[in-house]
Design a protein around this nucleic acid. Structure first.
Lengths: 158, 158
DNA sequence: CCTTGATAGTTGTATGCTGCAAGCAACTGA
DNA sequence: TCAGTTGCTTGCAGCATACAACTATCAAGG
């Protein structure tokens, strides 16, 4: 047993708060009106990634840590609505080069703007430094999570 | 209107990171082996709240910001597995006084321990102060979220 | 060239978590 | 005791996801 702490370790509190925030954010997102009625909120990160350049479905799936089939469906919706274009991949005719369209960038901007309004309303008594501080910690945590998720496919503790 | 920023506001970055972390944590949780095969990870917060004293289903639902029906189902599972007891409510025979049992406390401890192991492995290069700092910010954010969720039932921005 | 195996993506099916609405039991007030 | 309200459960539907089967294409050898 490596945890010879008799006191409650700091990670326990962090875990509790993480679970709490995730839950609350999930609930909040569900209640928030969608920017576009047919676009899943879960598809938003796709736009975020596609905004940084064209990529394949498989690359996108890996980027968002989701199954290819899931991303395929989400992309299909976005394509049907005209936010994303499925162009030919010059190197492989099986694959598609997904690229975000004009309206897709607009949607992304709208999503960000709405989220910004909401956050600003939520964090009225936070200073900019507070926000930046939290953002920095979250980014670091996210980075650690990504490497952890990509390195360990399964197994570990338990 | 206080938002005369022409530069990217700090909340935009925060929003991006929040979405990212939530997504990553969700994925990580899905891949993690369950402490108990039949207990939803989403039910863990229920144990957390019940550990602080007996309460009704409705109170529990409000505490976790979920629908009563959802909590009812989750509680039924926990009762079937012996982690929670549905005792009579002395003041109202329609209601039940849910209380966590011996094994429920054990399960909660196991869940926390497993999460701790995972977090400690994840945050190897974080100092305790870093962790505490993030925890504090998250707690503050969670508090703001809770008041926001309880005050605004609908409407707002969009 | 063909054939065989691997790869990119799509679609069928199943599962898990959720909320809404209907229903049942019990409380409350007249 | 009767009408309305409240606490909870259950039937049903929605949504996101993953796994598996399938099609189309590529790549390597004979």
């Amino acid at each position: 047993m490596p945890t010879t702490d008799t006191t409650r370790p700091v990670t326990t509190d962090l875990g509790d708060q993480l679970v709490r925030v995730v839950k609350l954010l999930t609930v909040a997102r569900q209640r928030q009106p969608r920017q576009h009625p047919l676009v899943d909120p879960m598809a938003y990160p796709l736009l975020h990634h596609l905004a940084q350049g064209p990529m394949r479905v498989s690359a996108l799936a890996e980027a968002v840590h989701a199954d290819v089939s899931t991303v395929s469906r989400q992309v299909s919706t976005l394509v049907d609505l005209g936010f994303v274009e499925r162009g030919p991949d010059p190197e492989d005719r099986r694959a598609h080069a997904l690229s975000i369209g004009e309206s897709g960038l607009g949607l992304l901007a709208d999503i960000r703007a709405g989220r910004d309004r909401w956050l600003r309303q939520l964090l009225t008594d936070w200073t900019d430094d507070d926000v930046r501080d939290l953002t920095g910690h979250l980014a670091r945590l996210a980075g650690d999570l990504e490497t952890h998720l990509t390195t360990t496919t399964q197994r570990d503790d338990a």
